[in-house]
Amino acid sequence: MKRGYSESSSTSLGPPQSRFKHNPEGDSEFLEDETTKKFARKVADHYSARTNQTLEEREASPIIHLKKLNNWIKSVLIQLYAHRGDAVLDLACGKGGDLIKWDKAKIAYYVGIDIAEGSIEDCRTRYNGDADHHQRRKKFTFPAHLMCGDCYEVRLDKVLADDAPFDVVSCQFALHYSWSTEARARRALANVSALLRPGGTFIGTMPDANVIIKKLREAEGLVFGNSVYWIRFDDDFSEKKFKSSSPFGIKYKFHLEDAVDCPEWIVPFHVFKSLVEEYDMELVFVKNNHEFVHEYMKKPEFVELMRRLGALGDGNQDQSTLSKDEWEVAYLYLAFVLRKRGEPGRTQVNGRRDKGKMNISKEDVMYISND
């Protein structure tokens, strides 16, 4: 067997836990070098620079059906694990694209945090319903609190001491940005664990390391992709082998048409599973997005949701659907659900409604850092 990460199905738990060296300072002290800061800022600048699209511009996207499929996957996760009256923490909330999903779940309180200033501003205007390109004019039913900062750097339990605990923590298509160093990965998971109530759930989506490494090894060189995406590894990985003792900082460049163009990091899922257990969380499930679609499309309510979102057309006049290349991109990702250990208990959020606002001004956005 080749040395490196398993190429087994994403739904398996992977090989025995790697004996990687833990950073004992990872939880109590965040150690970040200038290179890591530069990459974090590059990611933030990339997403800040992306402008909100009108409905017409969105529909013209070369990956519109992939975007709709991703929305369906996130909607299914939220419908399965969010409940009426929940308090929600949305890590790397971006431009607030999931706000309507949370509103439909009838949550009672929402906190969103993102590193990109531009994204948080777009999230604020989307929540308020102020921007012309936002189709929604109906007010959201839950109060919200928005923060701008790096949730993989800043210790959030002190910042959100009056808001916690949360019933649900969500991190969609963003957790892999924490995997540039062990300290950042640990800070991310320590924040989740500290803020999630016992019995609460952590839901998320991120790249599937097994699939990416498999495709890399099948490629002739260090680049692979199709008409809508490409992934390129540096010459450091020319042998296409990865030391089990160094599972952090495995960087690649990811380009996805009309969506992403920045550095990302491999998250070996067996290492991720091992790490979350240190932070008092346990795996409920992990499924590659292909398997996720096949499983939940067996349920009538989610078939109807897929029809309404239009990832596969509406089944009537609209016969458009995912292209083969978009479906290949979906295969690059997985969905996961974790549970915080302990006896479940309901969080009383009514007393915290005054922590958030029903209309958020620029002055209401909290900026946080380690400085």
Rank of each mutant, 00 (worst) to 15 (best):
E264Y: 13
Y109L: 14
T201Y: 15
A82T: 07
F233I: 06
I266D: 08
L99Q: 02
F142D: 01
G249I: 13
V211Y: 01
S246Y: 02
T321W: 05
P268A: 04
F237R: 01
D90M: 04
R341S: 10
R19W: 06
S320W: 08
F302L: 04
E264V: 15
Y333F: 15
K139R: 15
N23M: 07
N226R: 04
I120F: 00
P344W: 13
E363I: 01
V260E: 04
E57R: 15
V211P: 00
S180Y: 03
W72V: 07
V159W: 06
A116H: 06
D258R: 07
S61W: 05
D258P: 03
V365N: 04
R137F: 01
N70L: 10
E34W: 03
F173Y: 13
Y47W: 15
V365S: 08
T201L: 14
D371P: 10
D318G: 08
A44I: 01
C123A: 15
L66W: 01
M306H: 09
A174C: 12
G342Q: 09
N288G: 15
R308T: 09
S28Q: 13
L322N: 03
E182D: 08
Q53N: 10
R186M: 06
S238R: 10
E34N: 11
Y331A: 15
V267K: 05
R19I: 06
I63P: 05
G94V: 08
V211E: 04
P15Q: 12
Y252L: 08
K357Q: 08
I120A: 01
L312S: 10
A116V: 06
A183K: 03
L91G: 04
G313Y: 09
A209I: 00
R186G: 05
V111Q: 02
L31D: 11
D364V: 11
I78A: 03
M358A: 08
K158C: 05
Y279S: 07
K68H: 09
V337H: 02
V76I: 14
S193A: 12
L189P: 00
P300M: 09
F140Q: 07
D162C: 07
H22R: 13
L196F: 03
A259Q: 08
A44C: 07
I64F: 09
G26V: 04
S323C: 07
E257H: 12
M358Q: 10
L312P: 00
F302P: 03
H46Y: 14
H145R: 14
A188T: 13
